[in-house]
Amino acid sequence: MTTTTAPPELESQPGRLNRLREALAIVFSSRTAVVGLAIVIFWLAIGVISLFWTPYPPNAQLFDPNLPPSAVNVMGTDHLGRDTWSRIMAGTQVVLLKTRLATDPRVVIPGGVAIWGVIGAVLVGGLLGVNAGYRGGAADQVIMQVLDAFIAFPVIVLYLVIVTALGRGDVIVILAITVTGAPGVARLVRGLTMDIKTHDYIRAAETRGESKWYVMLWETLPNARGPILVDAMLRVGYAIFAIGTLGFLGLGLPPPDPDWGSMVNDARKYIYSNPLAILWPSLAIATLVIGVNLFADGLREEITRYQR
């Protein structure tokens, strides 16, 4: 009997496609996830469009301040006579699409502050959690006690400490989201690791003589990715809130480039004379957070069902 082996590239193509198809099938089998995804895609599209076009330059003071919505300014103008819709559009970029590094000349990297913040939290929290869960004993005690101490602080206090100590800027906000998000991720990953490390394939890897780092990074974490992914999606929602909260406290991203939280804070001062100005950025934050949460919830439901 002869056996023929297909070249690896031919074998992997259908595999990847299949996996993508399976992932999409999971998303599309949940109505909740579809609605969430639609909202997220809407804002992503708005953000991408705003990279090339907005009705008016978002920082240009072209109109009278605090104008109500009209054909010229569909969402009215803010307290500095800037077009609110143009600023809402551009505000999407900093949340989802781009991060400005405080370099001279300024460098912009793809991926918004919320996205990088969550990536930071997942990386830091994931590494700490997998170490605590896998190593156990004193390492577990020390890591988790320190992280619990962080969790004990109110999140806003941690934001204030970080921003006051380090200043303002996109990277600082990313750091704030990372520091406040990492303990939660670590707790989740530790729990998953403690379960996974009882499985036979971990024993097999240890018997093969693999290093602890190999077992943690190549055997444990990939098998925990489903819950971590769902948690990360939820954390994008928290991160958007965090950016909004920092902006609202006047500690967020530096003006004049728009971010939704700062827009709410600015408009709040004029709430009696121009109440709609506070509504638009609030709605933007709320819809994007709801979209991300619905998507994550839908995914969790379907993944759980799929695993059963």
């Binding site: 920082n59 003071q61 500095l80 303002r168 006047g250 500690l251 530096p254 003006p255 004049p256």
Partner: peptide, 27 residues
């Protein structure tokens, strides 16, 4: 903050690129 943002826009055609460093009052 309003004066700073207005000046940033007004000074751009004059040849200035103004970066804003706006902190809370004690800062």
């Amino acid at each position: 903050p309003e004066i700073a943002q207005a000046l940033k826009e007004l000074a751009a055609p004059g040849g200035f690129e103004i970066a804003l460093d706006i902190t809370e009052p004690n800062g």
